[in-house]
Design a protein around this nucleic acid. Structure first.
Length: 303
DNA sequence: TAGCAGGAAAATC
DNA sequence: GATTTTCCTGCT
């Protein structure tokens, strides 16, 4: 399909796809190429329209509107979160950057690979996983690969997964795949819960005793924010933590703040993570996740 | 709860 | 080239 989508509210395709929430989009010249929900999408922004060429009829205008969350007005988000100097500058600097709505399984699986890693590496790992286990897709004479289904990764041998460069993360993603494939965990049901309940479910405090290996509070928050529509989720990675230390030390509390300020490589333990992210939700409100995304972008873009 | 290991790519020195 | 860092979690 070849179509354009009208952009009635501020949107930046570049800032959105470069914001570290997705790993399967490539910028090649004038176009971005992505593999999304079992199809290939080529997109580019032309002023206040988004031009899309897709491999499948399922990926139509309403699909893309939902994927990029274009029916929401990010100006309302700015009105809600841009209440201090840092966030006002962030909203200007990354004007139009959006949270997206990804596929839940892919998002959860991908972020379980993100521990002790970096964005280029996560892209490599996911790309190899898809090439080896994903369904092949044809688009404009080239071959692409869908993100593998849980069944495919549940059936994969640990050795095969390791050969995708996953290292010690290989058992994590395989275990998550098994839980979804045969363990009776339905992410669609989890999405119906409110934020707190959904997080508890992913952290295995609900839905029986299944433990999703490799899913701690940070990975759970990323999945909830990027694919479950939980805009109050506030993932704290090393970049956000550095920004909190510099700009929002009150969220850490004096004791923790002092300790981390001395540390060369500040990290949050599980208990501290939960306390600080709760404080951030309290401070930034219903769009705390948007605040996090802009703080993250500012933190990574340097001073 | 604190401390540590973990595999390998990427960034930095 | 060697060393350090990397969108952290699991285990002890």
């Amino acid at each position: 399909m070849d179509f354009t989508v009208g952009l009635e509210t501020p949107f930046s395709l570049d800032y959105t796809l470069e914001s570290g929430q997705v790993f399967r989009w490539d910028n090649r010249g004038e176009w971005w190429y992505g593999v999304v929900s079992g199809g290939v999408v080529k997109a580019r922004q032309e002023g206040d329209t988004l031009r899309c060429v897709t491999s499948s009829d399922r990926h139509d205008s309403s699909f893309m509107r939902a994927y990029f969350r274009l029916d929401e007005d990010v100006e309302l988000v700015y009105a809600s979160i841009a209440k201090d100097d840092l966030l006002r500058r962030a909203a200007q600097r990354f004007y139009g950057m959006r949270l997206m709505s990804q596929e839940r399984w892919e998002c959860l699986a991908t972020f379980s690979l993100a521990t002790n890693s970096n964005i280029p590496r996560i892209r490599t790992m996911v790309s190899q996983l898809c090439r080896r286990f994903g369904r092949p897709l044809q688009f404009e004479g080239a071959e692409y690969h869908a993100f593998p289904d849980p069944e495919a990764l549940a059936a994969a041998s640990p050795q095969d997964l390791r050969e995708c460069g996953l290292g010690y993360r290989a058992p994590f993603i395989r275990h998550i795949a098994k839980c979804l494939d045969e363990g009776g965990i339905d992410l669609g049901e989890v999405a119906l819960f409110d934020y707190e309940q959904a997080r508890e479910a992913l952290l295995s405090k609900l839905l029986g005793t299944k433990v999703l290996l490799g899913v701690g509070p940070k990975v759970a928050d990323c999945a909830l924010l990027f694919s479950f529509g939980k805009d109050e989720a506030f993932p704290i990675d090393v970049w956000v933590l550095r920004a909190l230390l510099e700009h929002y030390p009150e969220l850490l509390g004096t004791g923790l703040g002092r300790r981390l300020a001395k540390d060369e490589k500040p990290r949050l333990g599980r208990g501290d993570y939960l306390r600080v992210s709760a404080a951030a939700r309290e401070k930034f409100g219903a769009y705390a996740g948007y605040a996090q995304q802009y703080i993250y972008a500012m933190s990574r873009s340097g001073p």
